[in-house]
Structures are given as C-alpha cells and as structure tokens.
C-alpha cells in the first residue's frame, strides 16, 4: 500500500465521545472522509448526529476521542481556527445574522473564512454575490435575513458556509422542510459543490437524497455507529431498517 493510494483523509475522527451529564450522546464514533467524498449520515431523532457535527465544528468539546483535520490534531482548536483551516458548516437550527442583508450575511463568510478570508471588502462582496447566485438567492441579495422565508433561509445558510471556501462542509439537515422540487435543487447544488473538490458530511432524514448523493453512508443509533458502507447495502441492512427506516414509517 503506497501513500498515494491512501492519501490523508480530510477529516478523521477517532473514538469521538460526548457525554451530557452522564448521558452518552455520541459513543466512541470513528470515521473518516476523503477529499471530494460525500459521507451521508443518518439515524433516528436524538441519535447524536448534530452533536457529532458540533464536535467537528468545535462548538462543543468532546468528552473523549480525537479529531484530525488533514492529518493534524484539531480536537482542542477554537471554532474560528477550524474555519480558517477549512471547516464550514450549516446549523440545523439556522443561525443567520438576522439584522443583516443576505449579501452582508454571506460577505462575512467570504471576508473571514478559510485562511482568514479575502480581507478585502470589495472582493468579499463580489464573492458573496457569486455564492448567492449559486444557491439561487440572487434576487434576494438586499433582503434582510429575518425577512427571508424558510427555504430561502436554508439557501442562505448554505451560501454562508460555502463563502468561507471550505475543504470540508458539514450540512445538518439542509433539506428539512423543503418540497420535493427544492430537495432536487439542493441535491444538484451539493453535487456541484463536491464537483469543486469539497468533502461533505451530509445529515438528512430524506433517505432518497442520501441514496442519490452519498458515496458512503454511516448510521448512528443511540450515539453508536451501527453501520457504514455503500448506500445500497447500508440502507438495506436489517439493523438499520429496524433502528431507523422501520421507525420512520410508523
């Protein structure tokens, strides 16, 4: 096995664990995502998906385990340093800058972001405009974030994360609440993002989307990884069907 056959993964988690007052939300989860790869993450409500994303993004500290980004440890790195390294994310409970326009929202990502961002206001605005076009918000550039409707807020959340030019993008249920047409749009957007060489962790309850997008799928249940592999076999794994899909149908 040569080094080139197994390049350093973009992100690698080793036994990540999070305990909230004794309750284990994420229980020794290990995984890695290669450059340009889409890892789908599914699991029932409360399985620990968002907690896992929060540990990668740095908004909560793991109780145990280790996290490597491009081979370097970042387990204790502050949130902004991870953004500088190239980790972008969306929030399941969206976090727009409510009093700013859509353009200003996205400009923040371009102005800061990876390697400290573009620094120049004019260039950052230009880049932000591009990302708003890309996510289909081109016409809402001057609308305040708190005046945007649900689907547009999702697009904004996506555009902000993209504007920081991530190498790894963590998407926490960006399709929730969207209609089938909008879901298809987002799937195309995600594919286009991957086409630009970004690695993605995609959390979705929309199984159809996970099946269409993912190179690999990982399943969490009660904080533990219960399955991982190619979409077809994981989604037909009896344990997964019982833990997740079965429950979903009832």
């Amino acid at each position: 096995m040569s080094a080139t056959a197994h390049p350093v993964p973009v992100v690698q988690a080793l036994g990540l664990t999070k305990r909230f007052q004794g309750l284990v939300s994420v229980d020794g989860v290990s995984f890695s995502i290669a450059a340009n790869e889409i890892l789908g993450l599914i699991g029932p409500n409360g399985a620990g998906k968002t907690t896992l994303v929060n540990m990668i993004g740095g908004t909560i500290a793991p109780s145990a385990g280790e996290l490597l980004f491009e081979g370097k440890p970042i387990t204790d790195a502050p949130v902004h340093r991870r953004a500088h390294a190239g980790i972008g994310r969306t929030f399941q409970v969206m976090k727009p800058f409510p009093g700013m326009t859509a353009l200003e929202n996205v400009t923040v990502g371009a102005l800061f972001g990876r390697d400290g961002g573009l620094k120049d206001m004019g260039k950052a605005r230009e880049a932000a405009r591009g990302w708003l076009e890309f996510t289909g918000l081109g016409r809402r550039i001057d609308t305040r974030a708190d005046e945007l409707g649900g689907p547009d807020r999702k697009r904004l959340e996506f555009a902000k994360a993209l504007a920081l030019r991530p190498k790894l993008l963590l998407l926490d249920e960006v399709m929730a609440g969207l209609n089938p047409v909008e879901v298809d749009e987002v799937i195309e957007l995600i594919k286009a993002v991957r086409g630009r060489g970004v690695a993605l962790l995609v959390i979705e309850h929309v199984v159809k989307a996970i099946r269409r997008l993912s190179d690999r799928v990982m399943v969490l249940h009660h904080g533990q990884k219960i399955a991982e592999g190619d979409p077809a076999s994981v989604l037909s794994d009896p344990r997964v069907v019982e833990a997740y899909l079965g429950k979903k149908r009832t």
Partner: peptide
Amino acid sequence: RFGMGLVAIREDEAAASTMGV
C-alpha cells in the same frame, strides 16, 4: 472588515465564530 466582524458577533456570536471571526 473589523466592523463587519463586530456586527456579526452582535447578530449571532456562534455563527460568527463558525465563519472564522
């Protein structure tokens, strides 16, 4: 850029950090 960072902190500090502020 400095002021943009400050306003981002005011609007949502966690989101601002996530963007690299």
